[in-house]
Amino acid sequence: MTDTPSIRTVTVGLGTRAYSIRIGAGLLARAGAELAAVLPGARVAIITDEHVAVAHLPALQDGFNEQGIGHSALVLPAGETTKSFEHLQAAVSAVIDARLERGDAVVALGGGVIGDLAGFAAGIVRRGMHFVQLPTSLLAQVDSSVGGKTGINTAQGKNLVGVFHQPRLVLADTSVLDTLPEREFRAGYAEVAKYGLIDKPDFFAWLEENWREIFAGGPARTEAIAISCQAKADVVARDEFETGDRALLNLGHTFGHALEAATGYNSARLVHGEGVAIGMALAHRFSARLNQASPDDAARVEAHLKTVGLPTRLADVPGGLPDAERLLGYIAQDKKVQRGALTFILTHGIGQSFIARDVPASAVLAFLEQESAGS
Rank of each mutant, 00 (worst) to 15 (best):
L197M: 13
H130L: 00
I47N: 07
P181D: 15
I225V: 15
I355M: 03
R326A: 15
D234V: 01
G252E: 01
S294M: 02
A187D: 10
R212F: 02
A45W: 02
S294Y: 01
P77C: 08
T154E: 06
A118Q: 06
K200T: 12
A216Q: 12
K158N: 01
A361G: 15
V192K: 12
H257E: 05
D3T: 15
P322T: 15
E50Y: 09
I152D: 11
H56E: 03
A78H: 15
P5N: 03
I350W: 09
K336D: 12
A224I: 14
G218E: 06
F241I: 07
A261P: 01
I23T: 03
I331E: 07
V38Y: 05
S375P: 00
L27R: 15
V125I: 11
K232R: 13
N153G: 01
R289K: 12
R30C: 09
S375M: 09
K306F: 01
L197Q: 07
A281K: 04
L117D: 12
T179Y: 09
R99C: 03
G79E: 09
L368E: 00
G374H: 05
R126E: 05
L290A: 14
R339P: 00
P360H: 14
L270P: 11
L305E: 07
H253F: 10
D297F: 09
A261M: 08
Q338C: 04
V176Y: 08
V317M: 10
Y330P: 01
V38N: 07
L197Y: 08
V364C: 09
G320R: 05
G13Q: 08
H304K: 05
F204T: 03
